[in-house]
Design a binder for these strands. Sequence first.
DNA 1: ATCGCTATTGAGACCGGTCTCATTATAAAA
DNA 2: TTTTATAATGAGACCGGTCTCAATAGCGAT
Lengths: 353, 353
Amino acid sequence: MIRSVTVADVAREARVSKATAARVLGGYGVVSDKVRQDVLAAAKALDYRPNELARSMTTGKSGIIGVVVGDIENSFFSFAVRGISDTARAAGFNVILTNSGEQIEAEKAAVRVLIGKRVDGLIVTPSESRDVSHLRDIHRSGRPLALLDRALPDLDVDTVTVDDRNAAMRATKILTDIGHRTIAYVTAVDFAGHAYRGLEQIYTSSVRERIEGFLAVCREAGIVTPERFVRFGATRPEATRAITDTLLSAPDRPTAILASDSLIAIEIFKLIRQRGLRVPEDISLITFHDADWTSVTSPPITVVDQPAYLLGKAVTELLIRRLKGEIRPSQRVVIPTSIIERGSVGAPSGQKT
Amino acid sequence: MIRSVTVADVAREARVSKATAARVLGGYGVVSDKVRQDVLAAAKALDYRPNELARSMTTGKSGIIGVVVGDIENSFFSFAVRGISDTARAAGFNVILTNSGEQIEAEKAAVRVLIGKRVDGLIVTPSESRDVSHLRDIHRSGRPLALLDRALPDLDVDTVTVDDRNAAMRATKILTDIGHRTIAYVTAVDFAGHAYRGLEQIYTSSVRERIEGFLAVCREAGIVTPERFVRFGATRPEATRAITDTLLSAPDRPTAILASDSLIAIEIFKLIRQRGLRVPEDISLITFHDADWTSVTSPPITVVDQPAYLLGKAVTELLIRRLKGEIRPSQRVVIPTSIIERGSVGAPSGQKT
DNA sequence: ATCGCTATTGAGACCGGTCTCATTATAAAA
DNA sequence: TTTTATAATGAGACCGGTCTCAATAGCGAT
């Protein structure tokens, strides 16, 4: 490795002290115009590039925001990440991106690494609300933390989420209003055994809220034990297919499905097609996230539009304001969603309201 | 900010010298078992977290790979990035991600920042082949550089691309074989004036190769001046729509379109639909990149499947091997693509072969 | 008992910046 | 002209690790 040019080298070249050269190069303190010119000329001649690492070490600031996200492959997250990067860069920050794969251990490891790298602040989509010790650690180390998409009741930090419960209620209501009484809800959140054993066992706040909203509206519509049709563990395409398969083969096949994310929905849609069923005549479908594919299918899919980019932008702004020294009680921002009604919802076939 | 625990603190707690504590904490040198236990105990008691920044400063290695990518929003790149992150993490590296928005100035700035952060190596998708001075700088600074998706004739570094020319030829051949004689090629690469003025003006290697392949097959099929139907500047949805609009309104409307990426293709597809035209009866469509939406449309879209994840994995492996000290001439890996024939290609309506 | 060799440990320089404080030069005030 | 305030510069400590080299200790061999 070629030894890189340092302030000391520039100082020598410009015949000034290291301190003076550093003042010019670092843009702090005061120096005479003449000396400034000399140093700048020397720096250019030697092609000096500041070592941000060394700079960070003394200042204690790295200019980096650490991001731990569930799954970059999910376009909801890639939009959020794009929102984060754009906002961060505009404010002069860089981003280190890690994805946890929704695994709590990976998430902990990622946080440990990021703290080691002395990031200035972190943005995390916590995969679990049970184990938040590592997030407490961040907070305790004096580094600001902001939560994206999922709130943590026990952790009093800046949080940006969408109105999950309300969105789920509105989406479900569209289905019940048109007459559906057998509605399935499919989510990626996994359980030992994939079986639903009660809301309090769901440790991902966004998902719990959605299911709460879903169940509430179902009950309101007179559906008994709607939780029978809540399905967990659609973490990967194969799993989603297996779950959907069982759902579609059952004697009491649901007449409508609400998908918790677009990765799940696309598999469900494919499988419905593959079975020769029609949307919405045989099965209605609504999904969370306005993924690009939802508008080009026939029929196009009715979706809950989550402003993912905005979500990323909002957390980042909150975090940066704190990084810039703003002192204030932590804020919980809830961004409203809207439902884009397209063509994937229709009255259930066999029955009428 | 709470002062963090340092090796000196641990050393004091364990009643050994800083050097000794550093040896066990840093995992180098030799220490007696007894002392090791003491130090470890002290570290745990104090909740010591190594400062990777300081560590990087002395070792000269940051354990970070810098990535500059064209546009994360493009799912081709998000898959590639996923391949990069997964591979990097598996080898113990972290990733700093920046996107250039295909802007050369942004790319240069990103490279400067990453070098400042003393990343161990870089992966770049160069947006231009004209101006590579900043990439030369990387190389010159002794940091390994690897190119993703686009080759640079003048730059002798590890490069991983797909067989763009060949892929374009095969895709075009499918169209000419079935009888198309008016075929448009739409790409995001922009030009002052959007007008085609010759291959040598295209500074993105992947795009040039594709267009070369496209034109070659067109000519072979007896099409005169096929370059009349090459369209540039589909950088954003609105631009793509404008371009497509013009294309579809022309008296010599193309009977087939080849799209350079899936972001372009989806807009084209939407617009075709909007105009009441049918795929493939009125217009055939093939696109690069097997985006998820291409398999759920009616008809599903015929695509050039680029193994994006694999591409990311391959460059990262090449880079890491070099980071680990492997000395060898630079390698140019070309990954083969395959065409997935679905239902978006048909014989042109008015004419027959 | 003395010597030699090896296993441990300690002291302190170093990485490349920032930053405090002392010193010198210069200009304004008395 | 002398005093004093102010601007500009230099010397060197510091951040939190790594690493070299010297010092000490423990052991068997002679």
